[in-house]
Design a protein around this nucleic acid. Structure first.
Length: 227
DNA sequence: GTCCAGGGCCTAC
DNA sequence: GTAGGCCATGGA
């Protein structure tokens, strides 16, 4: 990318962030009491409404299952029952348990020790785990491990697509590089930026464009939103 | 009743 | 390398 184009992109993405931040204030994203809860939530929210994830996490807490040790020791049926409300519960049970096993084998079950690992090899290890793709890995790296990676999700694609900033079907790594190349590698900024995208996406950017009142509407290209 | 949600894997071309 | 089917529940 040319320096001039990169500078324009930085300006565009910064303006986008300013509009959302002015509308919502700090989001404090991601919800979760501990890094491990954040990591589990990242797996459970795959293609699923967050309200359903909350139910599953509440079940885990009530059953005292919200630790790698407890999950690995629990009956499979008990874990499945707890995760049921989050949908795809058989797959997600397998994915959560595989993550727990890896965390235990590699770091003695410690998210703190995991977070001390350098970013690039850690990301590669996460991506090698069955059931952890790029978005889930980056959720965990950014919000549970405080690593400066930008999370790309469906809302990110939709918003950038509608504003003519990037095609919505740009490959994940290219979309991530677009943000990371244009913004400073700042964990707090990346956390808030993604949180604001999620909030804006939920409120204004569902499948049908619904731009009335959207903080980003004044930035839309001529001709209105595109998909 | 129908549609859809903050993905990821597998298979077929 | 990519398009399409599959996984499952709960809320709108």
């Amino acid at each position: 990318m040319s320096p001039a184009r990169r500078a324009r992109l930085t300006e565009t993405l910064t303006r986008l962030h300013s509009r959302m931040a002015a509308h919502y204030g700090p989001t404090g994203w991601w919800p979760g009491d501990t890094p491990f809860e954040v990591a589990v939530g990242a797996i459970l929210t795959q293609n699923t409404a967050w309200t359903n994830v909350e139910k599953a996490i509440a079940h885990l807490k009530a059953a005292r299952l919200l630790s790698p040790r407890a999950l690995l020791a629990a009956d499979l049926a008990a874990v499945e029952a707890a995760l049921r409300p989050s949908g795809y519960f058989r797959q997600k049970t397998e994915r959560v348990l595989l993550f727990c096993q890896w965390l235990t084998d590699r770091f003695g079950g410690s998210m703190r020790r995991m977070a001390a690992e350098p970013l690039a090899p850690l990301r590669a290890e996460l991506l090698a785990l069955r059931g952890i793709g790029p978005e889930t890995a980056d959720d965990i790296l950014l919000y549970a491990c405080e690593k400066p990676v930008f999370v790309v999700d469906a809302y990110t694609r939709r918003i950038l697509g509608r504003h003519g900033i990037a095609p919505h079907n740009l490959p994940y790594e290219e979309m991530r590089a677009l943000f990371e190349g244009a913004l400073p590698a700042d964990v707090a900024l990346f956390k808030e930026y993604h949180g604001l995208i999620v909030w804006t996406g939920k409120d204004f950017c569902r499948t049908q464009p619904r731009c009335a009142g959207c903080p980003l509407a004044p930035l839309l290209p001529r001709g209105g939103p595109r998909d």
